[in-house]
Structure formats: C-alpha cells, structure tokens
C-alpha cells in the first residue's frame, strides 16, 4: 500500500513473483490476456499425474484477486475444478501465470473524488458454461468513485433466457447495495441520492421497473423448480 496526496494505491507487487517462483515460471514470456475468450472446456482431456501444485497455486490466485480483479473470472473457473483438474486446466493456469508476469506492478488506485455514493455494474452471460449451461454473473461496485467490491460467480440455477440470468444478477446486486448503504449510514454518511445500478439488458430492466411482468418471471422460476422436483422424485 502506498499513499500520496492524490490517494491510496493498493497492490500485491511482491506476491506475484512469489507465485511465479512457486510454479517455476519466473522467466516465462508475459501474455496480454489471462485466457482466450473463445476457450471451450474439453471434458475429454486427461487428469494430470499430480495436481497438488495446481491446488496450491489456484489458492494463491484467490488471494491475489484482492487487488487483481482482471483474473477474477478465470480464477473462479479454475477453482471449480480444484478437486479434479485435467491437463487443460493446468494449461489454463499457466496462461494466467504468464498474464500475471506482465502486470506485476499494477494495482488499485483510490482517488479523492469528494463525493460518497454507491454505483454498481452488473452483467451476466447466458448459459456460458458449455458443460452444465449455467450462466455466470459478474459485478463490481464503486463507493465514492473507487472500486471496492467485485466478483464473478456461476449462478446456482439454469436460466431460460438472458433476461432471467441478468435479472438474477441484479437481484444479487441489490442485496449488497442495501448492505453497503447501511454500512455507509453506520459510518455517518446518510446519502439521499439514489444508488445507481447499471445493467445491460433491457428486458431485465423492464422486469425490475414494471410489476406486471412479475407473473411471467415467477412462472419461469416455478417452472424450473417444478421440473427439478419432478426429476428428484424420479418421475421424469
């Protein structure tokens, strides 16, 4: 952590070389991006001989996401296979390590913006995971113009439409927004301005603002629960 008159700079500069050393990739060639965006998980790739290093390094990645949010999605993807990685996951881990090599000095800057309000961006892909077709939510939250919270999380249920996936992301987001508002109120900053929630799906925004639509979404959800119940009862 470094401070100046402009603000605070947070980074984990020493930690990245430690990870690279651990993986014996200290002299690797840096990469521009952590993972290929068109990457498809291949369920047929073989399990590696040993994956203790993989588990240890993914654990270190999780700690690194405190200041390196660019790898949040990739780390969440890798940690889903921490119990049984394949050679493909090991290759993905090496890609991330190469990316980290190129960004050692970077971190998060907190600057003085004189206002304290909450803004939040949410997004979701739709059925992005090729293996189980669940959607992944991503969000980041800014308090006083500075980044404070971010996450990438695979949704618990399969959604029927992108609007539903985005709407779920929004529901999750609003919970934390309310919590953050209470936290600020506790700190003595009672804000009367609206919190801003950004979302990039028109349908999901209509569902949020128009109560008439709720029947439709409830139906979707009930549908999904019903089918699952039937499946669990071994009726289908």
């Amino acid at each position: 952590m470094a401070t100046s008159n402009k603000g605070v700079f947070l980074n984990q500069q020493k930690y990245i070389p430690d990870i690279l050393q651990d993986a014996e990739m200290l002299h690797t060639k840096p990469a521009i991006t952590p993972l290929d965006s068109k990457l498809r998980l291949d369920s047929s790739s073989k399990p590696p001989l040993t994956f203790i290093t993989y588990q240890r390094i993914v654990g270190k990645f999780i700690y690194l996401t405190i200041t390196r949010l660019a790898i949040t999605f990739d780390v969440s993807l890798l940690s889903q296979y921490i119990h049984a990685p394949t050679t493909q996951h090991l290759d993905m881990m090496k890609c991330i390590l190469r990316y980290l090599k190129g960004i050692i000095g970077r971190g998060i800057v907190m600057t003085r913006n004189v206002y304290i309000d909450i803004t939040r961006y949410t997004d979701s892909d739709w059925a992005g995971n090729a293996l189980d077709r669940r959607s992944t939510t991503g969000y980041c939250m800014l308090v006083g113009g500075n980044l404070v919270s971010w996450k990438s999380k695979k949704q618990q249920v399969v959604t029927h439409s992108s609007a539903e996936a985005e709407y779920r992301a929004m529901a999750y987001a609003s919970c934390e927004l309310i919590w953050a508002k209470n936290l600020l109120a506790d700190l003595g900053f009672v804000s009367h301005t609206l919190m801003i929630l950004f979302c990039d799906n028109q349908a999901a925004m209509h569902i949020a603002s128009n109560p008439v639509f709720h029947e439709g979404t409830k139906h979707l959800e009930v549908d999904c629960h019903y089918i699952r119940q039937q499946f669990q009862a071994k009726l289908i």
Partner: peptide, 19 residues
C-alpha cells in the same frame, strides 16, 4: 471483510482522513 476495508479506504481517501 475485505470489502469493508476497501469501503473504509475509499471513505477515508475521499474525506482526506489519515489512516
């Protein structure tokens, strides 16, 4: 939680408080 640490840092920076 790390998010509280970040919120507190942001508030302190915005208010010009020392940490």
């Amino acid at each position: 939680k790390i998010i509280i640490v970040c919120v507190l840092l942001s508030v302190a920076v915005n208010q010009g408080w020392s940490l």
